[in-house]
């Protein structure tokens, strides 16, 4: 049994394929031969499968949108984990979901929708029971050296959050229709994320690496020139 940080997971569930390659997340670390990787994605994403892990793809975001109308992923991923591991039954899952959401003060109809969502996620995968997987020691223990001024928690590289690619958060993608756009610049003014810029003629350009898909731009556009489209695979 591991608690907190899981070093040798039997099952790994990844909410977005973009996280697979994030150096600060490294979800595949510690996975061994025979362990199971679940990726929330409609398409297969190439994974360097050196350890012969089993990979399952399902688009649970789609299910969330269908049932709840929003990309709420906690109930979905929880349900998948319950089923995959075979450790938690459907009733316990349903009870937990309704209790958690009641605590958040959600209305009964919305809780019911979430339960339906959890149920469908639960039935969307099969249990894979795993035992006797072989673990290899992964880590050496090292001594920390004194690093002088580098050991001071000051940050000197300014404006570097763009490295984080928050575009992976997006469920709906804003698309600008150049035929309707009058280059008024209003979308640029109101984008909270600084990810709309204006070209020389004043036409807006969206930085999709960072755009979180809030669609404030679409609501504010006086020409209704920005349409929302369901994001397919983010890469």
């Amino acid at each position: 049994m591991e608690r907190g940080h899981i070093f040798n997971p039997n099952y790994v569930l990844v909410t977005s394929p973009s996280l697979l390659f994030d150096p600060t997340v490294k979800p595949l670390d510690g996975m061994v031969e025979g362990s199971v990787l679940f990726v929330n994605s409609s398409k297969d994403v190439p994974i360097v499968d050196s350890k012969k892990i089993r990979v399952i793809y399902r688009d649970v975001t789609d299910l969330a949108l269908k049932h709840v109308g929003k990309d709420i992923l906690s109930a979905t991923m929880g349900a998948v984990a319950c089923k995959l591991s075979g450790l938690i039954g459907l009733q316990s899952l349903v009870d937990s979901v309704s209790e958690e959401l009641e605590e958040l003060g959600l209305e009964p109809e919305l809780i019911e929708k979430n339960i339906q969502l959890a149920k469908e996620c639960y039935s969307s995968v099969e249990s894979i029971s795993l035992c006797g997987l072989e673990y290899r020691p992964l880590h050496n223990v090292v001594e920390v050296r004194y690093m002088g001024e580098r050991g001071i928690p000051d940050l000197l590289s300014m404006g570097n959050t763009a490295l984080r690619k928050t575009g992976s958060w997006r469920v709906l993608k804003p698309l600008i229709d150049r035929n309707l756009c009058t280059a008024c610049g209003i979308c640029y003014i109101y984008c909270p994320e600084s990810c709309i810029s204006l070209d020389e003629q004043g036409y807006p350009l969206i930085n999709y690496d960072s755009c979180k898909g809030c669609l404030v731009c679409a609501v504010e556009c006086p020409m209704k020139a920005i349409k929302a489209e369901r994001e397919s695979v983010w890469s």
Binding site: T24, V144, E149, G151, I152, P153, D154, L155, L156
Partner: peptide, 29 residues
């Protein structure tokens, strides 16, 4: 060291939410 100056922006006192990094800075102290 790294004082706040117009010519050389710096972010100080910011959260360190990555556990090994937090340990690292405490060890350095």
């Amino acid at each position: 060291v790294n004082p706040i100056r117009a010519s050389k922006p710096v972010a100080k006192g910011i959260p360190v939410l990555i556990p090994p990094l937090y340990s690292f800075f405490k060890y350095q102290m």
